[in-house]
Design a protein around this nucleic acid. Structure first.
Lengths: 158, 158
DNA sequence: CTGCTTCTTTTGAATCAGTCAAGGAAAGCG
DNA sequence: CGCTTTCCTTGACTGATTCAAAAGAAGCAG
């Protein structure tokens, strides 16, 4: 549905062309899937892509995700205990809130912004490129329903 | 084996007893291994443990690490692209510097300390328990030797 | 210190995410 | 339209981690 009316801005095909990658329907579908499902894991992307392209191989999706990550069209995050997840929002260095109970991931902007998070006390001689911040806690739903029973052993994400 | 001179402080057996876990030689060895090899992955722990206990099963190590993590005697970290790594936790919420090239992990204290890193702009209703900060970059060695040849699989993110 | 109960460890197989490799298909170019 | 290069499909494979059943130790009572 709602096809390209303007076909710019975040249009998958355009984005791909700009990185001089070949525009294949698989890649377009993967990009679209990542946009539709923020923080989706690979399996979710595969399922989503197969809604429009039933015959895609999982390998094509893995490969597309890697390629797209390399050229910077998607970003890959892997909170502890979770499989790889991808997101379309890139460029800004936003961070993530992860629910310990259900695995829900939500974006947060780095208010305090730049300085504090980007300057560790002593850098041990490292050349620092990026600071990645992950906030762990409970999402609203889990905080309510699971407040009492949380705390044992669910590493089950999603 | 520098045996108990004072037998307190960080003595594995004592620590275990205090958490009402059974004191087994496997667990003691695992705790010791984690202390000796900061940020060791499971395989390293297994090898280290087998130096003194040649017959330990890998399963015992996996299980010990999980149990010890649960009771808070060790902490598990998993930077993107890395397998699980463990460290003897100190209760302080220190952070990590990870080398993109060789994977080296180094501890850093959270200078600015408390506030900034622990308060995202808007918490989306989450109950936040912890902020985890990972600094990505190049360790001194890789920054020098690899400065030119690095860049195979990572363009500087943000 | 002897036996019992419960928690741990061993053993060995299984699962799961992700990867490798070779041949067939399709994008982009002229 | 046909070629070249890049991409996708197929199917097997790896490596980290987990499951499950049975044997083995820790801690406790007697």
């Amino acid at each position: 549905m709602n096809e390209t009316k303007h076909g710019h801005e975040e249009d998958p095909a355009t984005a791909l062309r700009q990185t001089s990658l070949r525009v294949t329907k698989q890649r377009v579908a993967v990009l679209e899937a990542v946009r539709v499902h923020p923080h989706a894991d690979t399996e979710t992307v595969i399922r989503s892509v197969r809604e429009t392209l039933p015959a895609v191989s999982h390998q094509a999706v893995y490969d597309s995700l890697h390629t797209l990550t390399e050229v910077g069209l998607v970003r890959c995050i892997q909170p502890s205990g979770s499989v790889a997840r991808y997101e379309r929002r890139i460029g800004d260095n936003h961070h993530h809130l992860v629910c310990r109970s259900c695995g829900l991931i939500v974006d947060v902007d780095c208010t305090v912004g730049q300085a504090p998070c980007l300057t560790p006390s002593h850098d041990a001689g490292f050349v620092i490129e990026q600071a990645e911040v992950t906030f762990w806690g409970l999402c609203p739903d889990c905080a309510v329903s699971g407040a009492a029973m949380v705390g044992d052993d669910h590493r089950s994400a999603v």
